[in-house]
Amino acid sequence: MLPADRFDKEGFLRDLDDWEPSVAQQIAAGEGIELTQAHWELLNLLRDYYAEFDSSPAMRALVKYCAVKLGKEKGRSIYLMSLFPGSPAKLGSKIAGLPKPENCL
């Protein structure tokens, strides 16, 4: 378990290098989410996005990126909402160990 002081007040990792799969499970558990294969597919996609664009996506960009990388069926906000309820880009980024998306107002 990563101690609480490794997270900021919104629960995002202060140091992105602290992230590993067990940390993702820890953050997800705190949000009441049990990670399934579908979740992992999206978490990996978010980490790919961050590596490619040096930023966390806003919802609009995430939906489009999913459509490009995973196909049209998954590139829909309702699919993302079903996995990461509320604000999928923000919650997904948090669990994937990425910074909070800038354009998530």
Binding site: E52, F53, S55, A61, K64, Y65
Partner: peptide, 10 residues
């Protein structure tokens, strides 16, 4: 890198 993501924002 950030610029490369602009198309994803339409």
């Amino acid at each position: 890198k950030l610029l490369a993501s602009l198309p994803l924002y339409d």
